[in-house]
Design a protein around this nucleic acid. Structure first.
Length: 447
DNA sequence: TCTGGGGTCCTAGGACCC
DNA sequence: TCTGGGGTCCTAGGACCC
């Protein structure tokens, strides 16, 4: 039986790389990608990181710098990133059956049917790296180890400390050297809170964390933390998650460009979020029984005392993915929890809990079967039309409430074209054909 | 003027039941 | 009214991830 080895393939500065695929002249130049509303930086190219631009920094704070350093900035273009991500993943899947797509830009693979010498593993990784780049234009790094946590660490080393972009944390000496060298915040599962807590006990590098007393870790960080420590020692606690893992919750939330005080605006926003939620439910073939909504105040406004955080939950009479039913329930719920607050609300969210696959859902005893069928037909028709003609071509009027402006709608000023998913945004290359033909004719004559 | 969105897992505590 | 053990379900909140 071959040894089980994990590889983590991670795209380098993924969003920035996606933008570069279609703008190759930006190779080597600093790029950032902005969050919704063009609020803050969510992704930076290596060159932008070198300028000191960090994840999460508000865009207005670096606008001056952008001018000075010829920084290129983009609004997020999730359709483009999502499409390129799928292409990368399908290349990986051509190499092995066990691929866990962990996020939009990374995936775990199992290498157990290969020769498990370090040399062979590195060779294979390089091959994958080159092939992904050839097929998609996206550069990736590969980390290899016996546990997921170590593979993550190996990937970090591959990215930061090697020119090849592949690295194996397999033999004990290498593991010790790097664990001594790297700070604990590089470990998967150790975030800001634990870094602070652990530093109180003098634990700052990975080697110290790995050698900490397990019972003490269990008390301080729970079973999750204990698993992390065991994985750092090479004991495998995490498996590859099967691809059909179904999600448990679906959330749609957005911040608004400005604070909203009017309930009409909020109704319109909640209705629109709920519409998205319905689309997602149907896309995943799920229904929901429980709907939760929340409103939050602007956390950056100071001196406001306790956070205004309104939330409410409603149990639906039966599981559904019908936008009409969901919207009316959400709006009723909003009206019942809404309290006026002069500073307004900055963000609203709608969440579906207790998800059920639509195949096994029993229809409500009291609902007649025909209305269920009608609802399904209507939703299918709406989804089809909106897919073909564009988002919101057909929608419930609540989401464009009569008294509401569109003050809550998102800003995306600098979005690049959706090159690979929209017919009218394809990359066009202009070639003067006449000229080209004349040139060729000349060459022919001469030869 | 301008500060993201979407998830997971685990734990503690309260309500309620036998 | 008090006493005890054991269990389930739900919710809120804390930690993390990308």
């Amino acid at each position: 039986m071959a040894e089980r080895i994990f590889a983590l393939v991670d795209c380098n500065t993924f969003y920035a790389s996606c933008e570069r695929v279609f703008r190759p002249e930006l190779e080597g130049r600093p790029i950032v990608v902005l969050s919704n509303n063009d609020g803050c930086v969510v992704a930076q190219s290596r060159e932008a990181k070198n300028l000191g631009i960090t994840m999460g920094v508000p865009f207005f704070k670096i606008k001056e710098m952008a001018k000075q350093h010829d920084l290129h900035y983009f609004s997020s273009n999730y359709q483009l990133y999502g499409d390129l991500s799928q292409r990368v993943m399908s290349v990986l899947q051509s190499y092995c059956d066990e691929v866990e797509i962990y996020s939009i830009d990374e995936a775990f693979m199992i290498f157990d049917f290969y020769d498990s010498s370090e040399e062979a593993l590195l060779k294979l990784s390089s091959k994958i790296k080159i092939f992904v780049k050839q097929c998609t234009g996206i550069p990736v790094s590969v980390g290899i180890a016996r546990t997921k946590t170590l593979a993550k660490l190996a990937n970090h080393i591959a990215k930061r400390y090697t020119t090849e972009g592949v690295f194996a944390l397999m033999n004990d000496d290498t593991i010790e050297t790097w664990q001594q060298k790297l700070p604990i915040e590089q470990v998967w599962g150790i975030g800001y809170g634990y870094v602070k807590k652990l530093s109180l006990y003098g634990i700052s590098n990975v080697w110290q964390l790995r050698n900490a007393n397990e019972q003490w870790i269990r008390k301080l960080m729970g079973v999750v933390g204990l698993r992390t420590v065991k994985e750092l020692k090479g004991f495998q606690c995490h498996e590859i998650d099967p691809p059909e893992t179904t999600r448990q919750n679906i959330l749609v939330s957005r911040s608004f460009p400005s604070d909203l005080t009017s309930i009409d605006e909020l109704i319109s926003a909640i209705a629109s979020h709920t519409t998205r939620l319905g689309e997602k439910l149907r896309k995943y073939h799920m229904k929901t029984e429980v709907l939760q909504i929340y409103l939050t105040q602007n956390k950056f406004k100071v001196g406001k005392g306790p956070d205004y955080h309104l939330s409410g939950t409603v149990h639906l009479p039966f599981p559904t993915a019908d936008t009409g039913l969901l919207v009316s329930a959400a709006v009723r719920l909003l009206k019942s929890i809404f309290t006026f607050n002069k500073d307004g609300y900055k963000k609203a969210g709608v969440m579906a809990l207790n998800l059920l696959p639509d195949s096994i859902v029993q229809t409500n005893l009291f609902a007649d079967a025909t209305s269920e069928i009608r609802s399904q037909k209507l939703m299918r028709a709406m989804d089809c039309i909106n897919l073909k003609m564009g988002k919101n071509t057909i929608h419930y009027s609540t989401s464009t409430h009569a008294n509401a402006t569109s003050a809550w709608q998102m800003r995306t000023e600098w979005r690049s074209p959706r090159y690979s998913t929209h017919w009218d945004e394809f990359l066009t290359i202009q070639v003067d054909l006449q000229d080209e033909l004349v040139q060729r004719a000349r060459v022919k004559k001469i030869s």
